Simulated assay, not measured.
Amino acid sequence: MTKVDGAMATITVDGLEALLQAIQARGYRAVGPTMQNQAIVYDDIESIDDLPRGWTDEQDGGCYRLLRRSDDALFGYSVGPQSWKKYLHAPKLRLWTAERHGDDISLASEAQPEDRLAFIGVRACEIRAIEIQDRTLISDLYADPHYKALRERALIVAVNCGKAGGTCFCVSMQAGPRVKRDFDIALTELLDDGEHLFLVETGSDEGRALIAQIPHRAASNRAIEAAEAVIERTASSMGREMRSDDLNQLLMSNLEHPRWDEVATRCLTCANCTLVCPTCFCTSVEDVSDLSGERAERWRRWDSCFTMDFSYIHGGSVRASAKSRYRQWMTHKLATWIDQFGSSGCVGCGRCITWCPVGIDITEEVRAIRGHDASAEEPR
């Protein structure tokens, strides 16, 4: 376990409640895991009573359900259908409004958001996903002003995973389960010997100031060792695995592999995988106007490379087949993303597997292509 500032602390469940209250007292809007519609989703929270105490999730390809735990863990699940992208890179955003006033037209850009968001319970794979979104949306020549405004003011309270989901493979993508950087506060939930504690690490001045406000005590060696054991146990129990060191070469050398045809017979091109993915960033814009023609608006909304219109140009869609659209998504996520941004676009959260209606498994597709790699065959 990496020590921050040479020290660690522990807090109780009451201490976590005090931390939430301190966060809100500093003007943050706290967002965290809640139970809604038989799933764990992110929403506004006021206290620890809003957290999914005593619940966990069971996940597999095309399968998700909640189950009762035998303890009162507050973060005893893996990840649900939503990611923090929902808050930083909104599914739908008005960009500007135009109004006609006689012969004059006024144009007003959408004001930048002023929310100070505090994300509670962010996993290591999700922090990696936010890093990737940062690289895409604010670290290049052109920055998304709405994303930037929210991201710069966001507070991250991370949680080291105590449970690997059935579709998780973050270890394969070097994205978890341990939180290593880019957090303000990191927690590890401990439920041994009848105690319910959280080991606390701080990663910023804001995080240190918050912990200084609440009851805490120096962490014992026993607590640090227990937290280390939690993370090691999670890392050794991943539901999936995928070799990732050669994906760019593997996939780009097999663009005509027969597996693309096979997966196309199962893929519904429903776009679920891109909507639940924490790093997909594709959008489209649409203009709307009222019936009088006096007011018009331009909106940006999430889009997907699985939709027919996404690659439409004059004359038709460039990627008209399910085969070409699935291949575009998977090769971009795992291969050409590396060319563009210097890393894979996948963090191993497993959402695309869990929330695919037909249970298509990206790790299995890679395994099938690797099993008959055309580029590795000797030329005749």
Rank of each mutant, 00 (worst) to 15 (best):
M1P: 12
G6W: 11
A22D: 00
Q24G: 09
A30S: 11
Q36G: 12
A39G: 10
V41L: 12
Y42P: 08
G54S: 10
G62N: 00
G76H: 00
K86Q: 15
P91G: 09
L93N: 00
L95Y: 01
R100G: 05
I105H: 07
Q112V: 15
Q112D: 15
C125G: 00
R128V: 08
R128F: 02
D134H: 06
I138C: 09
I138F: 10
L141N: 14
P145G: 13
V157W: 11
C161A: 07
C170T: 04
M173C: 05
F183L: 15
I185P: 02
L190G: 10
L191N: 08
G194N: 13
S204F: 03
R208K: 00
I211Q: 12
A212R: 01
E225I: 10
E228I: 05
M238L: 04
N248H: 11
L251N: 08
H257E: 12
R266K: 14
A271G: 09
V276D: 00
C277V: 03
T279M: 04
C282A: 05
V285H: 07
D287P: 11
F306R: 13
M308W: 13
S311G: 04
G316Y: 12
V318I: 08
S321A: 14
R327M: 15
L334C: 05
Q340E: 15
S343G: 07
G345K: 06
V347E: 06
C352G: 05
C356M: 01
D361C: 02
D361H: 02
T363K: 05
I369F: 08
G371Q: 04
S375H: 08
A376V: 10
P379C: 03
